[in-house]
Design a protein around this nucleic acid. Sequence first.
DNA 1: ATCTAATCGAGACGGTACGTCGAGTCTTCCC
DNA 2: GGGAAGACTCGACGTACCGTCTCGATTAGAT
Lengths: 193, 193, 193, 193
Amino acid sequence: MGRTRDEEAKARILDASLEVLEELGYPGVTTEAIAERASASKATIYRWWPNKEAVMLEALREAVAQELPFPDTGTLKDDIRIQVHNFVKLLNSTRGRAFKGIIAAAQSDSTVAEAFLSIWVLPRRASARRGIERYKKELRPGVDLEVLLDALYAPLYYRLLIGHQPLTIEFADQMMELLWKGLHAPSPTDQPR
Amino acid sequence: MGRTRDEEAKARILDASLEVLEELGYPGVTTEAIAERASASKATIYRWWPNKEAVMLEALREAVAQELPFPDTGTLKDDIRIQVHNFVKLLNSTRGRAFKGIIAAAQSDSTVAEAFLSIWVLPRRASARRGIERYKKELRPGVDLEVLLDALYAPLYYRLLIGHQPLTIEFADQMMELLWKGLHAPSPTDQPR
Amino acid sequence: MGRTRDEEAKARILDASLEVLEELGYPGVTTEAIAERASASKATIYRWWPNKEAVMLEALREAVAQELPFPDTGTLKDDIRIQVHNFVKLLNSTRGRAFKGIIAAAQSDSTVAEAFLSIWVLPRRASARRGIERYKKELRPGVDLEVLLDALYAPLYYRLLIGHQPLTIEFADQMMELLWKGLHAPSPTDQPR
Amino acid sequence: MGRTRDEEAKARILDASLEVLEELGYPGVTTEAIAERASASKATIYRWWPNKEAVMLEALREAVAQELPFPDTGTLKDDIRIQVHNFVKLLNSTRGRAFKGIIAAAQSDSTVAEAFLSIWVLPRRASARRGIERYKKELRPGVDLEVLLDALYAPLYYRLLIGHQPLTIEFADQMMELLWKGLHAPSPTDQPR
DNA sequence: ATCTAATCGAGACGGTACGTCGAGTCTTCCC
DNA sequence: GGGAAGACTCGACGTACCGTCTCGATTAGAT
């Protein structure tokens, strides 16, 4: 019983957490800053989330919930390319900063790590796996789908997190081309017949 | 003239920072914890490093400085495999926790990010690039070396940081096989001649 | 119109406030603790009282309403002694803690101070004044009744609040004896004739 | 070893606590308010005092440390009168508010109670006892000094804390007169001879 | 026999202050 | 002049109560 949860306050808090993150960067995300911007009290935040990382995670999930459905063009290469392009654009938007922050938090907080996995990573991988499995016979036999998913997504996260080179569409295209054809120049003798 | 830097204290501080990191995890790494374990004072730490991330970074660099020279077996595939296997082992050791912590810190602290790049990432990539370039003619034309390096290393960092699947030697082998041959099963018509 | 006040809830709240006060001491008296113990809601408390001090005050008044009528033995000294003895016993009971709490609250909350005066202090003084005035001719001329009342009651509150010595019947008797006869040993020359 | 306590900061904190108390009243005395006004940090306050009451108590003690030495005019009645007058003036000054606050705090915090006793009450009583004992032969035999001290000081605290009547010099004089001579009009038969 | 409005328990809300912790700086004394 | 010890300011943490509010469920007196 009792008063029901104030959905408006919840929305204000989630919005505020992303705003603060994108304006001040991850170290600027404090519960007090979120509370002030959301015109909410810290107690309300802590009533519903265990820590600020959980707030940001939920905010991020809501913000990107409907984004990035795996496409269905009828062509494997196109499906993958569209998906990867969209993800590159997402990571290059202001959301990218949020991803960096949450992945950083996950390194030392296993609850964040688990939440990030179950809320974001695993659903996206499952969706992509289903999308790719439709073209299973086009894949070289022996290609493990989990490995393939890692090969597709890892370089994007890698450039986001390490920042040694920019995360561009061109890079993504080159990476996909490399994956598609392999790095090795087949010698005449080991070509399939 | 004045006393010179106490090298012994420096060593104690660097050792202590890795010990604390590996025992307590990243959030347990406080300057006070390092100082106490090293029997040093916080002032000494701040005199020689700008912040605790710099301490950890230097400690990490010293610890792994001589590790992982790019091998030279005479065979590209073997060189890469040996290098990747060694890196997998390193990330799975207690050092892996240090890498997670520093990469996390780099997400919100650009000085850490730059230091991590210049001290660890770029030198290792340069070494690997030189090692691979020796076999340039074995590579499929058009393969960009930067992209190839990303394709090799990114999946290892990815599994370290995201943790959706374990970072095993078998995984690394499957990933290299995928990269070597490509994901696509070439149809008879688009085979090279 | 509308539903009438729930007298049972009122009683539960008043009872609970004294229970909490006597069990947990004054800092344990929170509106939430009262509400929980009374199975009432905080809103109900605030609908009928301005703050928790008012609740405690009303509870205290109800609890001691009929206590301590000024006696009428026909002898001034006996009347006073009985009254003081009863008051000492009251302050040494669990009620004493309630008095301490309310007097403490009154120091920073003038509404509590005024309520405590009008509900407890002034009525009791008026009653005592009437009781003593019956024996006016036994009093030394020039004795102001207000001053006398202070001299009688102040030491009891003083020991209750300061706690430098226990508040015992013996102490009260010594105090009354001192007041009765005065502290000064009259020299032969200044004796009345 | 290490840096020594900053005596200036200590003084700023003690001063600030009294200032806040006298300007805002007891409920306005928060550690944060003291810290801000003293340009100190809350951590410094909590390093040296267990709570704000302890701060105020020490501040009060320092403020009144040298005040109120028991006088020595050679006449008991004069010594007492001077002492009581001075105490009345102290309680009626802005310090009175501090006394009210600390006595209130002592009702629910035994450490405050003990500190108030040992720092203020007991030393003052000891001093007064020594002062009065010099005139022991002037006192009526059987007068207990502890009881007499209570009779002298209790009415002052009582009017301060209860506030049913103002705490004036006139009141104090009447009280002392009452105590000196006793309340009872001796009948001819029970006069000393 | 309904309506209707005030009351109730429950508990979420915006606030304020708490007492703690760590960062990075500064001070004192020792070597 | 470097170093250990440790006090300092600052800012954020997560908690506890305050007094207000909104629910849905009673419970009268008025219709």
